[in-house]
Amino acid sequence: MEYKGFDVNFGLKNKVAIVTGGLSGIGEAIADLYIKKGAKVAIFDVKKDTAEETKEKYGEAAIGLTVDVTQKLQIEAAIKIVMDTYSKIDLLVNSAGIALLDDAENLSEEYWDKTFAINVKGSFLVAQAVGKILIKSGGGKIINMASQAALVALDNHVAYCASKGAIVSMTKVLAYEWAQYNINVNCISPTVILTELGKKAWAGQAGEDMKKQIPAGRFGYPDEVAACALFLASDGSSLMTGENMVLDGGYTVK
């Protein structure tokens, strides 16, 4: 592939991005930053009022589509709307996910299945559908959301850790198979991020104890993950594929 340089401001002007789970948490922060950098964004979210909420927040800069990422037909229908609206897709961020926690002895089959359906199957189905378009169009970038839980054991996180480990492995295979089509596939592995859910889950002593295990001494913020996703979406990361960008304040270096 010919090297053409890149915008040193990591601009995304004229790019079209799909962001799953884009109405809350990390996905919302990524959608916000991509739009600020000039991209048009299609937000896939399971919320019934995704279209209305997206239009109210972003106006003409984005479209919102109600999509259950575990349902292939819903994904394909939504992607058709994106193509009809913007005529192309350049970027995908798989940010939709779930964390259902319990110890390994008592974790229910329902929790295991739902975790893998959303975190792994959902990410793959969207990546597969978008990948087919990128192969035909000459390339693009796919960013999957993994976690520090992919790299280390966390108490009560057996399904979540296993699902995020699967994301890292899936990312590597997609990167290997699709590099020939000028498609970069990478993932991001954050530590605890202070989304609204993160703030509630790690409030009080549990959060203080967790922060003591992080060399940087703090949790992360959604816009810090968005900054990593911006780099991976930009032309500046064109030689980077199959990698797991760890954003954990040093938690996993121990």
Rank of each mutant, 00 (worst) to 15 (best):
V41M: 00
E60Q: 15
A62N: 06
Y58M: 09
D68H: 09
I43K: 00
V41Y: 08
A61T: 04
F44T: 02
L73K: 11
I43C: 03
Q71D: 15
K48L: 02
L65D: 01
E52P: 01
E60W: 07
L73D: 12
K72N: 13
T54S: 07
E60D: 15
K57Q: 15
Q74D: 09
I63S: 13
A62I: 05
Q74W: 08
T54G: 09
D49T: 01
D45A: 02
T50W: 06
G64N: 02
G64D: 00
L73R: 13
V69K: 11
K40Q: 11
V46Q: 03
Q74K: 08
E52I: 06
Y58C: 07
E60S: 14
K47I: 02
A42Q: 03
E52L: 11
T66F: 03
K55F: 11
I63R: 02
D68I: 06
T70Q: 10
Q74I: 04
D45F: 02
V67I: 13
Q71T: 09
I63F: 12
K72V: 13
D45I: 00
K47Q: 11
D49A: 06
K55I: 05
A51S: 10
K57R: 15
G64K: 04
E60V: 07
T70F: 08
K40C: 05
L65N: 07
A62C: 07
K57L: 12
A42G: 05
F44H: 01
E53Q: 09
T70A: 15
A51Y: 04
E52F: 07
G64L: 03
D49Y: 11
K40R: 13
A51G: 00
K40W: 03
Y58R: 14
G59H: 14
K47A: 11
K57I: 10
E52T: 10
V69N: 15
L73N: 13
D68G: 14
K57S: 14
K47D: 04
L73F: 08
A42W: 01
D45N: 09
T54Y: 07
A62V: 06
K57M: 15
D49I: 02
D68P: 10
V46R: 04
T50D: 02
K55H: 10
A62F: 05
K48H: 03
A42V: 02
K57C: 09
T50H: 07
V69C: 14
A51N: 01
V69M: 11
K40F: 09
V41R: 02
E52R: 06
A42M: 01
A61C: 12
K57F: 10
K40G: 00
K72M: 14
V41H: 09
T54E: 06
F44G: 00
A62T: 09
V41P: 00
K55P: 02
V69I: 15
A61N: 15
E56W: 08
F44C: 00
G64C: 06
G64V: 06
E56D: 10
D68T: 10
V67Q: 04
K48F: 01
V67W: 12
K40P: 00
V69G: 10
K55V: 03
A61Y: 13
A61V: 05
T70K: 15
K55W: 05
E53Y: 04
K55T: 12
K72G: 14
